[in-house]
Design a protein around this nucleic acid. Structure first.
Lengths: 163, 163
DNA sequence: TATTGTTATACTCTATAACTATA
DNA sequence: TATAGTTATAGAGTATAACAATA
């Protein structure tokens, strides 16, 4: 087909037009599908977290603050693949609403360990339930076995590069 | 453990500190792993596409323009989950470098069909090879069978909601 | 000299509303 | 009136550089 040829598109309804594009090379690329799954998933998670005045990024920090692992800001930055300066803003946000505190690491006074307050833990419990609902929606077409398959495969590509 | 308790973190090297956070609830959430896989994947893809002066978003539009499906801008917006105004900017970019053209849909003069020029098709061939390399890197720890499993599972969660 | 947290800045991505031309 | 493309704008996400305190 040449570029100058007259455009001939089978007349379709708006609903089927996107179906048509699912048969393209792009739609079968892992990078594309991953990006699309994330777009759908985080969009849904953000909407569902709005009632708690959280977003996925602040939820992530809160979750790690509740993990019992006592992460420093630097560790949060590394693990969440965010710049340390972004962690500052996220921790500020959570600290201002009383959900977490910055505690001095007695072994290194440069480092600040982020821990959740009792209120922060309560907030996290609610948020974790919301995220569980969001995940159930994302995975609603998959069987329990398939969900674990996907989790296992995703883990291997999500954590391969940066540690 | 109470919030006021002294912070006790096992002294670890920077490399193992992030390992430690992989045992948290957050790290096992589908939403989180998907977001992280996308972050790693699209970051790598953007880096590798830089030599062709493309990014994943402009590559996506170019790819669909080369698909033979003659998508309209509206169809691109729907399929790529982007606002129509973003498509304008992306098509402008590709049109200005001679990779695609806007062609009037003879059946609806409001609609513009995006088709690749011969130069655009040549650019796409190079870019598609780059994306293939990027995908191979993302999936390097998976067997061929596992890659197809992941592709199949991802497809079912990526295309479930919007059509 | 190197690292942690911080501030500042700019660029990309995303979301929304309003306008025009066609249907 | 409804839809396709466009323009404009604001907010969220990402990346980089520089600085003070500490190691």
């Amino acid at each position: 087909m040449n570029v100058g040829d007259p455009v001939q598109v089978p007349k379709t309804s708006p609903e089927t037009s996107a179906e048509r594009l699912r048969d393209t090379d792009l739609a079968n690329e892992i990078e594309f599908m991953t990006a699309r799954a994330r777009s759908v998933g985080s969009g849904r998670a953000n909407s569902m977290l709005a009632g708690l005045d959280l977003r996925v990024r602040s939820y992530s920090v809160l979750s790690l603050a509740c993990s019992g692992q006592n992460p420093s800001q630097r560790e949060l930055a590394n693990f969440l693949s965010l710049d340390p300066s972004q962690i500052v803003a996220l921790v500020d946000l959570l600290e201002n609403r009383g959900a977490v505190t910055r505690e001095q690491d007695p072994r290194d006074r440069r480092s600040k360990v982020i821990v959740a307050t009792p209120g922060g833990r309560e907030l996290y419990l609610q948020a974790a339930a919301v995220i569980q609902d969001a995940e159930d929606q994302s995975l609603r077409d998959l069987s329990p076995t398939e969900r674990e398959q996907l989790r296992s495969l995703l883990r291997r590509i999500a954590f391969e590069t940066a540690e």
